[in-house]
Design a binder for these strands. Structure first.
Lengths: 118, 118
DNA sequence: CTTTCATATGAATAGTTGTTCATATGATTA
DNA sequence: TAATCATATGAACAACTATTCATATGAAAG
């Protein structure tokens, strides 16, 4: 027995507050989506990719060169960024150019940088 | 051979741009710190904890009750949030109250919510 | 001092994730 | 059509992580 319920709650006085909060909590799916979004930013390779795309579009091999990583590793990460719609692609012959999907991504990165530099 | 260098780069025309970007990229440690920060937000349990603390301080067992999880699981996650200075603690007898460390945390969560609702 | 309560933590485990290697796809050029 | 180039992807593996269970700590009450 270690999972508390609203019935056997040990801090009796908090019961009302707890019940209220349980009501205001967004649904599981939404909270899952939010954490999934942040999970994308929680990898230094992906942060680096997003950072270099900050300036403008780049092709896959250019990103690999700048970050000194293999084309495969970069491509795998770009797939994740593409699936979560954080980056956009543009094809030009054999080359595929990647760029940030919108300014939202920029803002989130800036937010992280700001928090770190304190 | 799959790791590109500035020397054997296949997209000759991009060489200059690539070299420039390599220079503007923040140092490894900073980028690691930023991704580490986002990694904290990349777990739904921690997001939920931060969300319920949004309203005000709560003790460990109250958080466990609201989130319908074990005290142990919550305590482990609170340790991570404490170590990364995203939450603060205040002791009152046997009870330990947790609250958000600063408004920065609030802003980041709002950011995530905003991005999701599109 | 013993018991009880709230919280913290170590060890174990199951699930997840990032990179590598090999190979496939899809577009250009010879 | 064959060869080459840029990119994508599947499988495998190593590293990491969140939860559970058992137990420890530390404070209050009896």
């Amino acid at each position: 027995m270690s999972e508390y319920t609203l019935e056997n709650h040990p801090c009796e006085e908090h019961a009302k507050l707890v019940e209220e909060l349980a009501g205001t909590l967004p649904d599981e799916e939404t909270l899952e989506d939010i954490s999934e979004l942040f999970k994308i930013f929680g990898d230094s390779t992906r942060i680096k990719i997003l950072y270099v795309l900050h300036e403008g579009e780049l092709c896959v091999c250019d990103i690999a060169t700048v970050l000194q990583m293999t084309q495969s590793a970069i491509s795998h990460q770009l797939r994740i960024l593409r699936q979560t719609r954080l980056v956009r692609t543009r094809r030009e012959g054999k080359t595929v150019y990647y760029s940030l999907a919108d300014d939202h991504v920029r803002t989130i990165i800036s937010m992280g940088i700001e928090h770190i530099s304190e």
